[in-house]
Structures are given as structure tokens and as C-alpha cells.
Amino acid sequence: MSGKPVLHYVSVRGRMEPVKWLLAAAGVEFEERFLETKEDLQKLRADGCLLFQQVPMVEIDGMKLVQTRAILNYIAGKYNLYGKDLKERALIDMYVEGMADLYELIMMNVVQPADKKEEHLANALDKATNRYFPVFEKILNHGHDFLVGNKLSRADVSLLETILVVEERKPDALAKFPLLQSFKARISNTPNIKKFLQPGSQRKPPLQEKDIPSLMAIFH
């Protein structure tokens, strides 16, 4: 077996995507093993690989890690993307959790009933531009390149990922946020992240309604 982390998930954008972003930002190559059938999932469960019977699951350093936040915390700590002390880590956690709420809201739009989709998306985008993005615009007013401290952290990676997810639905989402526009350009051009944003990378396109039946077949 290679020394690369092995990521077990379905072949769509979902809860594994932030893990891939963080590994990519750290310059870590990883292998993906996709669940294609219900039997694939059942085999992982039967083999005792899934502590809570759920994916995502990441094999790394001899462990089989589950629960997305735990996976992200480990990777951030291992690859020095988690601040220099407890205070910085607390800020990073706070910012990441805020963005996770917005990210989840956007991601869940695809599974809304047809008659609720438009209203749900409008609400999510309103929160992006009136609740979440103003917070980060204000934080970036500190004049530094990064959200916390003087180096890249998982908070920066998470914010860029979230910005791009919002812009897929609302291309002008950053129109009123010049500091976030500069942040997006700056972080997108760091070598590891720039590579991950290129066509042909392991980054997944947005989840589509057509993907739902195959996911349901695996998870239900």
C-alpha cells in the first residue's frame, strides 16, 4: 500500500470535498476509492472500517478516520494549517464552523423539493452576502494576507472553497467586498491551490439532481 492518504467516498462533491481541498493546499497527494454500489459501502461496514457506519473515511498514518470535522482537524494539525497556538486555533475553528454552516446550506439546495428550490437558494445566497461575507470582509480589514496569523491556515482554504461554491450560484457575490475579492485572487494563486483549481484535478463539479438516484441507491 502506498503512503498516500486513501479517501473513501462516492464520486461526487459532498462531505469529502473540504478534505480534498485541505490535502491539496498542503501539497499532499491522495488516492480516491469510490463507492459505486450499496455492496461497496456494506463491505466497508462489514470489515469494521467505519466506526459509525458512515463515510467519508480517510486512511492515514495507520488510522481509519471518520467524521469530517475530525478528519479535517487531524490534517490541519499534521500539515501545520491550524495556527501557532490555542488562540489562533480557536479563531480558525470559529471561522471554519461559520463557513461550514453556509456551505451546507448551499449544498443542500439540490435535495430540496422542486417547488422549494428557488426560495431555498435565494435564502442561502442572501445569508452569504448579508450575514457571512460581511464578517470576513471585516476580518480582512486587519491588513494581513491571511485570516489568522501570518500564514495560510485551514480557515483560508475553507473561505476560498466557500466563496467559489457561492459564486457558482451567484457570480457577482463578491461585488460589494473588495477585500474578499483580493483574498480570493491571492489564495487562488498559491501554487498548491492553483494546481487544484486547474481542469483535470481531483476537485469535483457541483452536485447535480441527476446524481441523486445513484447516491440514494448506495446510501438507502
Rank of each mutant, 00 (worst) to 15 (best):
H144I: 00
Q198V: 06
S2L: 00
A122S: 14
G77I: 00
L35H: 01
L125I: 11
K170P: 07
L197K: 05
R203I: 13
P191Q: 04
K43S: 13
D126E: 12
S153D: 01
D145H: 10
E137T: 07
A217R: 14
A46W: 00
L125F: 10
Q208S: 10
L140F: 01
L86W: 12
K170W: 10
L50R: 04
V12L: 04
L140S: 01
H120R: 10
L102A: 08
H8E: 04
V58H: 00
S153M: 03
T190F: 06
V165E: 11
Q67I: 06
T129V: 15
F52M: 10
V166A: 11
S201I: 09
Y132V: 01
V157N: 01
N150S: 13
V55W: 04
T68N: 04
L159V: 01
E97N: 13
G48R: 05
S188H: 05
A155H: 03
L23K: 05
R33M: 06
E32F: 05
E118Y: 00
G3N: 12
Q42A: 15
A90K: 12
S201P: 13
R89F: 03
A26H: 05
E119R: 14
S153Y: 02
A217T: 14
D93Y: 07
A25L: 10
I163K: 08
R203K: 13
F133Y: 05
W21C: 05
H8M: 08
F133C: 08
M107R: 14
P213F: 12
F177I: 09
I139E: 08
K78Q: 08
T190I: 14
A25Q: 04
G200C: 07
R69V: 14
D156E: 02
A76Y: 02
F196K: 03
N130G: 01
G200Y: 11
K195A: 15
Y82G: 06
G200Q: 06
K38G: 14
R154I: 06
V96T: 14
N189R: 07
A185C: 08
I71Y: 01
G200A: 06
E168W: 06
R186L: 09
A24C: 07
D93W: 00
L72K: 03
R89Y: 02
I60A: 02
E209C: 12
L7R: 02
K195R: 15
R13N: 03
I71M: 04
K151P: 00
E209V: 14
M94F: 15
T190G: 00
I92C: 07
T129N: 04
